[in-house]
Structures are given as structure tokens and as C-alpha cells.
Design a protein around this nucleic acid. Structure first.
Lengths: 207, 207, 207, 207
DNA sequence: AATGAATGAGGATTCATTCAT
DNA sequence: CATGAATGAATCCTCATTCAT
């Protein structure tokens, strides 16, 4: 059995100073991750950039992986906040409007710190099972499924699990590929076209 | 400027013995990659598993990355062979039949050595720009686009680039997520359902 | 463009413990250099002899060359201290007495750790331009030149740069060849003869 | 006792083809030595540049050092040819004229392939005792000594060994430093001045 | 709590040399 | 004789982690 590094943060960092240190560490990790890549992200360098000693780093995080996991978690939380809000907003909307909104949010969410997003996407498999990310995935599926069941009447007859899988895959794929293909130079018009088309793709499928 | 390790193979290994060595190295790399992950894939270990000395490894590959790049290339070639054949087969089929065939092939192609596929998918960004993979992406886009233009009359009016982007994203997403979600325990029935649904998704969008 | 290893020390080692480590490393390097030669001087061996881990070595020196450079520098400093003192002492002496003193000091200076001196002399070109050594060379030239100008009246008319070049070359050559030819078995009497003759050579030339 | 690599050439290479191979190897070694330095001079690279297989290299030279030794020897021979001729020419000349001629020749000899000369000068100590070079040194001393004894009457009373040591040192030093200090940009006028001055230095000393 | 010096296993890579063909 | 593929010991260097202060 391969030895897997521990990934849970060491303390809850309730104190203010601790909190600041932890933040600095996460910030530093994210920055280095983006600028240098995972291989070159060393704990010594993270500590240095965070303006903290390595010793302190290990006071709060038991391993390099724990640090990266925490960064992933933080990023994931940000995205999920946006996503959850969207689902609240969308609950009672008719399919077409709802899908349009969700697609828009999906693309927006993928554009929160897109460089970091890209790097993290690569690292997630490496860090072992991120409970957090998996949970988020499941949550998204649940939310979509719930919406679909609630709006069953607007749709053709269709297995809700399959439909969820297909819809989530399609929307995520567009959002994901959009980040990859030069996230920066994305004009508003192009986003609109993408949203229109993806909405059509999904709605057409559900009806 | 980040220093990137060289990724071009060193010799072309025309002789039989050389060819065998190279093959053994690629096989070993693939196996270790799958079983231990990229970080733990060391050149010494690769050489050992390949039953070859490290020196020989470096005779043919200038770096660890070059080795991984070659494995990626090989895997990519296999996939592309299948994909190209599918497009030939599909050229004159009507949309519905063609999409169904292409979706099927996409899922099949992602299941050629699915564990390796998963690992490689993660490594591709790390290895720098793989000319090969990018070229394949472009080729797939071109093939889809060509098909769509040829069958324009069966479809609603639609920008061919956008349509290509959407279709490729959707099909790939399903295929990709299918590998990730336990490729092994995929029943024939489930595949059929997935193919049906994805076909519906795409065809519905194009019509 | 040939890649040249970095040669600047990494930290200034202000703390006492650091200082001790650095000293041990330099000492070890010097010893191995003398006993085994440059090629066989490996960083692992240096660390071992210094009673320190390789990691610590690289905490203070970015490369093997940096270590050797530091040893050269240290040796150079020792020599220059003696040489500078000699020039102070000599400023107002008449030519004959001054030259005699300088020749004596040159030979003595070359005999500070003569084995190390020999090895280092070989390595200096290999380590790239040692700012330090070049600076010392220039300084010696400047000191000689200054002396000659100050004592112009005791000498025939002569271009000071040429004279400096000739005098430095001659004195250094004798000192250098003396170390090479079995530094150990050098009797006092022989040294006296050498000093006498070299003094005569130089003074004869200047008058 | 340190293991020293063998330095004697393996065969006498009487055959024409052999001769050509050996020449190509020596030429290649010299070129790489000059262009890349000793560390980077590998036997594989030498063979490649020489257009010969490594195997063949080892047919003629038992080790890398043997190869370098042979290059040194060849260079040394060239220099010694010139030097010996000079001594023949000079035998019956009066001191002043003779010294002037010898100094000129010394400078010229140091400028036969000066880049190679520089590199070799560094390597000679590393290659262990080069019988050849030592012999040449002794021969030069003997030639000088012989000349001095023959012309004793033109000189003051002086121990011939000491005188030889001093003269050889002085002349070599000037020649050596001249190569080191930018051999390339040496004008004829500067050479003349150097010769004049060095001659004066040495003759002044002997008289 | 914080510090940062020290650790040392481990990994990538080179290169002189051999030897089967 | 020539070839060049194969060898593998040896080397440099990194970096996660610990622990005395």
C-alpha cells in the first residue's frame, strides 16, 4: 500500500495571528503553484514567500500535500458558493432560463482565478481523494437532479440520473474548454454565443 | 523563463536491438506511470523494469519527460488511428447514424488502456506543449468541421466553428467522464444508454 | 555559450553555528583538493569529511565550483595580506632593499600551504574568472607601479607599465617555479641564493 | 595509492589507415579541448568528431588521459623542434644577440596554437607525470646551461645552475604571461618592446 | 509559538569503458 | 579491425521534514 501524505490542517487557527499565517501560506502556495508549477513548489519556497519559517509552515500543515489540498479546498469553496447561489436563484425558473443562468455561472465560476484553476485541476488527481472535491461533485449532481425532478413536467420522459450526468458533463465541458482556450481573450460577445449554444444544446436534449 | 526538459527522442532506433530496447522502455514507463504515478516514476526504476541500464535509457531519451512524451505520443497515435478510421467510415452517413458511431468510437477510444489514459491526461499539461496532442486536437476539430459542412443540409443554420466546438466538447466530456467514473464496471447496457443519450444530445443540437 | 556553475556563496553565515559549518566545509575542500585532486573532489565526500550533510553544503554553496572558489579566495586573501604588508613596509626603501624584501615575501607567500597553492593554481582557470584573483593581480601591478614611480629617480628612464610587467613576471616566475620544484626540501641557504639572484636580476634591469 | 589511468598509446600505428585514424583522434581531441574544456571532453564526443567509433578510439588509446597526453606530446614536440633549432642557431652568437633570439623564439613558441597551449598548460599537472614534458624541461635547462658555459667569458662569475634557473624562469614567465594576456591582440611593436626589455633583463643579469 | 540550520534519502544524468556482432 | 549498443558506478543536487534553540 502506497504511503499517502496526511492532508488535514493541523489546527484550526482560531487565533488572529495564526489565521494570518495560514492565509499567507495559502496565498503563497497558490502563487507559486501558478507561477512555477507543482514540481517546483517546495515547502521552503512557500514559507519564504509567505514570510514565515518552514518550521511554522509545519506547525499548521503536516505536509506539502496538505497545503495544496487546502488551496484546492479554498478555491473549491469559492466556486461552490457561487454555484449554490445560482441554484437557489434558479429553482423556480423554467428550464430554458434556468439552464441559461447555470451555464453562465459555470463559465464564470471556471474563470475565478483561471490560472490557479487550471493548475489545481491537474493536481487534484495527484493529491489523492480530495473528500472535498468529490463532495462538491456529488452536491452539484444532487442539485441538478433536484432541479430536473422539480421541473419534470417541462421535460420529456427521461431517467433523471442519466440526464444529470449528460447535462453536467456537457456544461462542464464547455466551461472547462473555454478556460483552456485562452481564457483571457474572451470577448463578451463570444461568451454570449457560447452561452446561447450550450443552452440550446442542453435544453434541446431535455425537451 | 522556466527551463523545460527536452522531449525529443534521441535516436530513431532503426536497428532491431535498439527497437526492442525502446519498446521495453516505453512499456516500462507506461506500467510504472499507471502503477505508481508520475512523481514516483524515476528513470532508474524505468530502466530496471525495462531490464535495461539507465545508460541505455539516456541513449534513447534525453530526459524523463521525453520518455513520458513518447508514451503519450504512442497512446495518442493509437487513439487517432481509431478516430480517423471512424471518420472515414462515417463520411456519407446521415447525421444521426454518424453521430452515434462517433460517440461509440469516442467512448471506445477512451477505453484503450483506460488507466494509462487517465494518468496521461493529467501529465499532458506538465510535459509542455505536446506538438502531437495539439495536432491531434486540431485534426479532430477539422474532421468534425468537414463532416458538418458536408452534411449542412441535414442541419439547421449554424456557425460551423461554434458547432464543432460544442459537439467536440460534449462528446469528449461524456467519453472522458465515463473513463473517470469506474471504467471497469461499465456494462454493455450502460454504454448503450450513454451512446443513445449523447447521440440525442448532439443530434438534437444540430437539427 | 558554455554553462558556468554559480560561484557565489549562498548565505553570509553570520551565526556562529553557520560559521563553523562553512569553515569545516572549506577546510575539508582544501584537504581533499590537496589529497585527491579536483576531479575526485566530490561534494558528498567534502560533506562527509567536513562532518556535515550534503544538504548543509548546498545551503551555503550553490555548487562544487563555488566551494573551490571560496577556498581560492581564502588562500588568495592570506597571500594578499602578506603582500600588502610588504608593500607598506617597502614604500620608502631604496630599490635594492625593497626588491630584496619583495622577492623574499613573494617566495614566502607562495609557500603558504604550498600543496594547496599548486592545486589551486591549476584550478583557477577552470573556475572561470575569479573576480578576486584578477583583482589581486591588478592590485599587485598597481602597487609595483606605484613603487616604481615613487622611486623613478633611482632608476633609468623606462616605461612604467613595461617595467611593472617585466618585474612582476620575473619575480612571480621564480617564486612559482620554486614551489613547483619540491617546495619541501628548500634549505635556507638556497632561498638566500635565490633571493640574491632574483634581486640582482630585477635591480639590474631597473637601474 | 591512487589509481592512475594508463597513458601510453596502444600501438604504433604503422599502417597508413591507422595513422589517419590516430591523427583524426588527436585533432578532434585538441579541438574539443579548446572549444569545450577538459571536463566536457568525453571520449564519445572525441570519437564522433573524429568520425570514428568509440571502439576504434580504444583500439589506439587505452584511456582518455592517454589521448590528452598524446596531444600534449605532439604540441610539446612542435615547440621543442623550434626551440632546438633556435639553440643550434645561437650557439656561437654573443650573449646579447643570443638572448634576444631566444626570447623571440620563446614568445613565438608559446604562440603556436595559443588556445590549445593554455588549455594544455592547465591539464599537464592533472595528467600525472608527463615524462615527455619533464624531459623537455630538462632538455631546455641543459641547452641553456650548455650555452652559458660556452659563453662563460662574456659573463660575470656565476653558478651555472642558478643562472640557468633564473634565466629560464624569467624568459618563460614573460612568454607565458604574454600568451595569457590576450595573445591575439599583440602588435609587432609590442612584441619588439617585450623582446627588448626581456633581453635587457636577462643580459643585465648575466653580465 | 517561531525559527532556520541540519538532515539524508532519493532522483536525474553523465561518461569512460567493454564486448558481441 | 571496426562498430556502437549497452553498462552502471559515480556525481551533483533537491527538498520534505525534523528539532534544538
Amino acid at each position: 500500500m502506497a504511503r499517502v501524505p496526511p492532508t488535514k490542517p493541523r489546527k484550526n487557527a482560531l487565533q488572529a495571528r495564526s489565521r494570518a499565517t495560514v492565509d499567507a501560506l495559502l496565498e503563497a502556495t497558490a502563487r507559486i503553484l501558478v507561477r512555477e508549477g507543482f514540481e517546483k513548489t517546495s515547502t521552503n519556497r512557500i514559507a519564504e514567500i509567505a514570510g514565515v519559517s518552514v518550521g511554522s509552515l509545519y506547525q499548521y500543515f503536516p505536509s506539502k500535500e496538505a497545503l495544496v489540498a487546502a488551496v484546492i479546498e479554498r478555491h473549491n469553496d469559492e466556486i461552490m458558493k457561487v454555484v449554490r447561489a445560482a441554484f437557489v436563484e434558479v429553482t423556480d425558473m423554467p428550464i430554458e432560463k434556468a439552464v441559461r443562468r447555470l451555464v453562465t455561472v459555470a463559465i464564470e465560476a471556471h474563470h475565478i482565478d483561471p490560472d490557479l484553476h487550471r493548475i489545481l485541476a491537474e493536481q487534484i488527481p495527484r493529491i489523492g481523494q480530495l473528500k472535498d472535491v468529490e463532495a462538491s461533485n456529488r452536491e452539484v449532481h444532487a442539485l441538478v437532479r433536484a432541479y430536473l425532478e422539480r421541473h419534470r413536467k417541462e421535460m420529456r420522459k427521461i431517467d433523471p440520473d442519466i440526464a444529470t450526468f449528460i447535462c453536467v458533463s456537457a456544461i462542464e465541458a464547455v466551461a472547462h474548454n473555454t478556460v483552456l482556450n485562452g481564457a483571457e481573450m474572451l470577448t463578451e460577445k463570444m461568451v454570449k454565443v457560447l452561452v446561447d449554444e450550450t443552452t440550446r444544446l442542453v435544453v434541446g436534449y431535455l425537451r
